[in-house]
Design a protein around this nucleic acid. Sequence first.
DNA 1: TTGCAATACTAACAAGCGTTAGTTAGTGTA
DNA 2: TACACTAACTAACGCTTGTTAGTATTGCAA
Lengths: 191, 191
Amino acid sequence: MSPRKLEIFQTALSLMKSKGYANTTMRDIASAVNMEAASLYNHITSKEDLLAITCFDLADQFEKGILEVNDIYFDAKEKLRMAIEAHTQILTTNLDASYVFIHEWKHLSADKLTEFKNRRNQYENGFIEILKLGENEGVFNDVDEKFVVITILSTLNATIEWYKPNGAFTPKQVANKLSDFILNGLLNTKN
Amino acid sequence: MSPRKLEIFQTALSLMKSKGYANTTMRDIASAVNMEAASLYNHITSKEDLLAITCFDLADQFEKGILEVNDIYFDAKEKLRMAIEAHTQILTTNLDASYVFIHEWKHLSADKLTEFKNRRNQYENGFIEILKLGENEGVFNDVDEKFVVITILSTLNATIEWYKPNGAFTPKQVANKLSDFILNGLLNTKN
DNA sequence: TTGCAATACTAACAAGCGTTAGTTAGTGTA
DNA sequence: TACACTAACTAACGCTTGTTAGTATTGCAA
């Protein structure tokens, strides 16, 4: 990807993060990179491409993460921690893209929308696999897996609402906070 | 609110839930209630009003809930359970509206947007009050409150992604599942 | 039965949208 | 020098959008 194209993508994602996909016009993007809207088409093929490429690139990363974790022979608790860390790592190192991924995927066109949903389901199944393993091991409470996986992913995704790249926490630290919260809950069990 | 106006609101919210606010046109809404777009304006004043009224009506409900909980003299654990139940009750009995509230508030016009954000902050502060109480009592882990409150609310709000009104769970049961998850986490502590 | 709201309609407007066509200036290459 | 490529421009197209104006129809209250 050429530097100019990269600049367009980053600018577009930043705008879409703050104004939403639908409210970000090609003219907005163009003026933010100091060119005319029509000139954008020398670099990209359509507005939807900005969204689709972003969504599916991140989907690739998430899928790769969960597959690696589930390929390893390890116990459920540690697997969950690893999956959470992989997820958090991707979110925190692609903040704008993640925001668009999480909040704007609905604007994908019909066929891409179905593909997106399918892949998200697959990703959820990767987590469900870990949950089932943990239940068999007796370390996780017996839970409604669909409920828990949606809850866990929502918990993880909340990260993008507050995380600041040069703030107090490294991605690894955030992942640990999230894992602790999800595994142990809020209650202090020491006393 | 007249029956026809109510019908328009419910239809509009249902459409906005599936297609998003920006992609739902006045003509979409009109044809879904068997009239022309222009006729809608006999009942409502603008498209944004549909959004604003929905958002601020729900905000009222949420605020009322947390204020009632924080007016009671009770321990933090029970307060948190009550706040979670109030929140869940509102979500599950206003599914479409809640969806729009959570996902489409960004489309509010500038001044209403600021008001919305302020009121959301106040609501979060209501939860933070409970968290601080729990830390003083020694029953909650010492936590970064801002992190935890965003995490908790995201966890709660995930409900609207899977809840079915005539499904297996009552709102109260959902609230209990959520409270258990947030307080105790996923780990089985019995063995 | 008349009159008046309420509620629907048709027609249209002004603005904004994504995108295309055609052109031009600059840059590196044969 | 001649050519091709890249990346910018201006101008415009066709369409959709939320909304307004003006008008017809309906149903109830007097």
